[in-house]
């Protein structure tokens, strides 16, 4: 697989995982659903995953369930990627 395909496969997996989380919280009382999904992702998804997540959301959220889309605004934005020491030196 090429690198781009790997990234795409990784993103498909994220969509699947986010929907899986939403599927669990969907049975909760209405007021807990959005908060539950957002909290779960905030607690357990590392910044790289959340970065990919927002890329997906901003590209239209293809495949993401409506509940995930609704929760997106409650999900913490990842910190900007740190400048790579190597890249900084090269400049």
């Amino acid at each position: 697989m090429s690198h781009d395909e790997d990234v795409a496969a990784g993103k498909r997996k994220l969509v699947y995982m986010a929907n899986q989380i939403a599927r669990f919280f969907a049975s909760m009382p209405r007021e807990e659903q959005v908060e539950g999904v957002a909290r779960h992702i905030n607690d357990f998804w590392e910044p790289r995953m959340r970065r990919h997540f927002f890329e997906i959301v901003e590209a239209g959220g293809e495949g993401l369930s409506p509940l995930v889309m609704e929760a997106a605004s409650h999900i913490r934005r990842p910190p900007p990627p740190e400048p790579l020491p190597a890249a900084a030196q090269a400049q």
Partner: peptide
């Protein structure tokens, strides 16, 4: 303060080259 990578995330990130 950010959660880190789980084992499977590490492997995913590895194939993504990060």
């Amino acid at each position: 303060e950010e959660p880190g990578l789980r084992i499977n995330n590490m492997l995913d990130a590895a194939v993504e080259d990060t």
